[in-house]
Design a binder for these strands. Structure first.
Lengths: 98, 98
DNA sequence: CTTTCATTCAACCTATTGGTTGAATATGGA
DNA sequence: TCCATATTCAACCAATAGGTTGAATGAAAG
């Protein structure tokens, strides 16, 4: 499963961009149960996108920066491909239009 | 649905990176029916990640470069967030270790 | 024409996803 | 000690995703 595929999870990541937060805080903005958000967090954890720090009964979540770099690398790689094929297309069109 | 979420679809995109291809060609490497691949292609089309050129009974698919730039922009934006919070974390750790 | 080839359409099946609710666990505070 | 709070666990449910097969469409080739 791709953890980034779900909009709720992307929103959670975005929220964590401005600092760590507890489960309850993360859940607050959403029109769904705390349990549902707890599950989403678990998915993000399994994907190693966030990490958890327990302090008594409160769990603080924060972003884990590593996998993002991998994602960016993947996109960059793809981009090279695409740009390449765009160039080829442009050349082809130029020839055709003469 | 996030079109990039499926590994088959990512493989198709990667294949299209080296030039346009027909449905049958795209389907060949996969251990699934032609129909299944045809469906994946439709998803990629709806997401405007690929476009189709019909020539007789053959359909040629090729990459559509626009949405990739959007994706890259999104990732870059996220990256800024993450880097930021990493810095904060490092500062916090430094203080703590004294 | 009839047949073959490239592709999609339509109906169907199963596993997974994203959600629910209710109970369990464990910490904190009166 | 007793109750409230923070969180997870477990069982369940509906919708969707990804696959299948078989028939339909439409172009090419004999």
């Amino acid at each position: 499963m791709l953890a980034l595929a779900d909009p709720t999870r992307r929103a959670i990541l975005q929220r964590l961009g401005s600092g760590e937060a507890r489960v309850t805080e993360l859940a607050a903005p959403f029109a769904m149960s705390l349990n549902a958000v707890s599950k989403h967090i678990r998915v993000l954890e399994r994907a190693e996108l966030v990490s958890r720090r327990r302090a008594g009964r409160e769990h603080f979540l924060s972003l884990n920066p590593k996998p993002l770099d991998e994602a960016a690398a993947w996109i960059d790689e793809q981009r090279r491909f695409w740009t390449q094929s765009l160039d080829a297309l442009e050349r082809a069109l130029a020839e055709h239009e003469d």
